[in-house]
Design a protein around this nucleic acid. Structure first.
Length: 628
DNA sequence: GCGGATCAC
DNA sequence: TATGGTGATCCGC
């Protein structure tokens, strides 16, 4: 925004945040990212000229491949309502017009009108900081009924131009206007003007639009602020025009690249724009193609974030292969609710909060006719750490009683907070899918000061494709046959650490926990593996004896013979780690085979229930998971 | 399957 | 005084 005193804004934000729990947590996260960046820099530096030449070849061949399959024939339109919530509120209360106003609360604002943005508000800025920047700021509470109503009005207009338009959110949509342009033999500009006028007529609201050969680019045009507010921008279906626009585009403008990724790309590779990304393709290829999962998915033509998107982003911009990431969510995969409340150490209160959430969740699920079998509990401590715990059940559930029953168990495993790193568990290593995550121990003496914030989360997976009804979220008829179909439930709960008299006890508690995370989770991994020798072969005796499978080799000195992943010879530690991965995979398979044949699933559930006496508290900590 | 993270709106 | 809620995806176990 023009005329914003950025320095002043930064200073105010800093002054208001400094020293707060929130701020401390942000610092902790930043330190983590810094470490990650340092590690990546080291990896970069260790690449030899030969390595780089190798990866450059790989990168170049992929680029050629992608260029040859480019399609610039479609015309996509991205529409974005201007300051939507704020604009709707102004419609229903015209006295707000011209005054700085924000929709949201003192905790968080969702949208601010353009008068207010002049004061330098950022996305997701808490209300109390916004008010500091602009004391006369008017707050209006959110009212989704209104926004839904107006959103529907806009969608009626969109439908005229593309009956299959894709709704990105309440205030955003993608339209394929290729056909309309062809049928009416007009340029896209004409359609866009007409559509925007139509939206304004129907709603009294203004919107901005971007037109480009694919959705990603159309949206980026909106991000670029060149067309906002109340404007439009058309990018011709021409390779040169696209390349010119994209080459100077800051990477952060692209959907999917957020604060953290931007930081990594900048500080590790010195990449600021899309063009620079192309210049670093060999490095990107070397560092981001290491993941086994990435290779596997790439083979299946699914695009994993780092392997492909980052490495060749500039080309995907042209290709639109990236579509699926932005495509309409055909059916939900999870359902959840969460609440943040002030810190408490009162366990009774926590349970009460959880009951409320379970009921809300169950009601939401029943409204949509959903059930599920994976329940996730989410806890946020007063120091803003977030933890989750999950169970996958054998049966699908949706009642609040069922949700609560399992959520309580999950909460029990989190309470009280302890930073004891010796409480290791290897259950999830050996018996994947084992639900029993409790470990009985004596009740903890320490105070577990919690506050809370509870959330319930239900997810649904593996839909039966035959259930066509499910594809239409507005169709209420799908309930009947679904119960035992493939759904999943998650429930979550957030707890914040309490911040009361027993401050000292709690904070030291937490410091301990933080340390565990910071020092062991990332590095410990490598250390453990370095114990092995420097050989590139996987020569574990157990492996040889129990699974007579092929031994892993580095083909052409780069490629893993088992999964195809590429690692340069100089990445000794990474190669060892990779060997270890294959070993673990085999062991895990072996173990689960043994487990399956010897322990009937029914019994596993019984043991779960027995191992969960309510009176005991469990001290299992999540940090532990990272430490083996 | 799980847990931590990142991202978008 | 005070930093949200919902849903999705990815990575590395």
């Amino acid at each position: 925004m023009e005329g914003v005193d950025k320095e002043k804004v930064q200073r105010v934000v800093y002054e208001m945040s400094k020293g707060s729990k929130y701020f401390q947590n942000e610092e902790r996260k930043e330190a983590f990212i810094k470490q990650k960046i340092d590690n990546m820099r080291i990896q970069c530096a260790s690449l030899s000229q030969a390595d780089l030449a190798h990866y450059q070849k790989v990168a170049d061949s992929r680029i050629v491949e992608l260029e040859s399959s480019r399609d610039l024939s479609r015309i996509w339109l991205h529409v974005d309502m201007d300051a939507f919530y704020a604009a709707v509120e102004t419609l229903s209360n015209p006295t707000l017009k011209g005054k700085p106003m924000a929709v949201g609360s003192m905790s968080m604002i969702s949208t601010a009108n353009y008068e207010a943005r002049k004061f330098g508000f950022r996305a997701a800025m808490p209300g109390f900081i916004a008010r500091k920047l602009c004391p006369e700021l008017i707050f209006v509470p959110t009212d989704f009924n209104k926004y839904n109503y107006y959103s529907d009005l806009t969608r009626k207009v969109f439908r005229r131009y593309d009956p299959n338009f894709i709704a990105g959110s309440l205030d955003e949509a993608y339209l394929d206007i290729t056909e309309v342009c062809r049928e009416r033999n007009v340029k896209s500009e004409e359609i866009v003007q007409e559509l925007r006028a139509g939206v304004n007529e129907e709603t009294g609201l203004t919107c901005s639009a971007g037109v480009a050969p694919n959705r990603l680019l159309a949206k980026v045009l909106g991000f670029s602020d060149i067309n906002k507010p109340n404007g439009e921008y058309v990018l011709p279906n021409d390779r040169m025009a696209v390349m010119t626009f994209v080459s100077s585009l800051p990477i952060r403008k692209i959907g999917g690249i957020g604060k953290v990724t931007e930081n990594i790309l900048k500080r590790v590779f010195g990449i600021n724009t899309c063009e620079q990304m192309l210049g670093k393709s060999s490095y990107l290829c070397a560092l981001f193609s290491q993941s086994t999962a990435g290779i596997k998915r790439a083979a299946e033509n699914i695009i994993p974030k780092f392997t492909f998107i980052l490495s060749f982003f500039i080309l995907f911009l042209l290709l639109d292969t990236y579509h699926h990431l932005f495509s309409q969510v055909r059916f939900r995969k999870s359902i959840s609710n969460e609440r943040t409340f002030s810190a408490t150490k009162d366990e009774v209160l926590l349970h009460k909060k959880m009951e409320e959430l379970a009921e809300m969740l169950s009601a939401d699920m029943q409204k949509e006719g959903l059930c599920g079998r994976t329940l996730t509990l989410k806890l946020k401590t007063a120091s803003f750490e977030v933890r989750t715990g999950a169970v996958t059940l054998q049966k699908y559930i949706s009642s609040s009683e069922d949700i609560l029953k399992h959520a309580k168990k999950l909460l029990q495993t989190e309470l009280p907070i302890s930073s004891d790193p010796t409480q290791k568990t290897i259950t999830n290593f050996i018996t994947s899918g084992d639900v029993n995550r409790n470990c009985s121990s004596f009740p903890d003496v320490a105070d577990h000061d919690f506050v809370s914030n509870s959330e319930t989360d239900l997810s649904i997976d593996s839909w039966q494709t035959s259930q066509l009804d499910w594809r239409d979220p507005f169709d209420g008829n799908h309930l009947s046959d679904v119960d035992y179909q493939s759904c999943i439930v998650q429930k979550s709960d957030c707890v914040e650490e309490v911040q009361t008299s027993s401050n000292d006890a709690t904070s030291s508690h937490y410091n301990g926990f933080t340390e565990v995370l910071g020092s062991t989770s990332y590095q410990g991994k490598f250390e453990g593996i370095n114990v092995k020798n420097g050989s590139n072969l996987l020569e574990d005796e157990r492996l040889d004896s129990c699974c007579q499978e092929k031994t892993m080799l580095w083909l052409n000195d780069y490629k893993c013979s088992l999964c195809g992943i590429e690692l340069p010879p100089s990445f000794v530690a990474e190669r060892l780690e990779h060997s270890d991965f294959h070993l673990a995979e085999k062991l895990q398979k072996e173990e689960s085979r043994i487990h399956q044949t010897s322990v009937p699933s029914q019994r596993r559930m019984e043991s779960l229930d027995k191992a969960n006496p309510r009176s005991k508290s469990c001290r299992r900590k999540k940090a532990v998971i990272h430490t083996y």
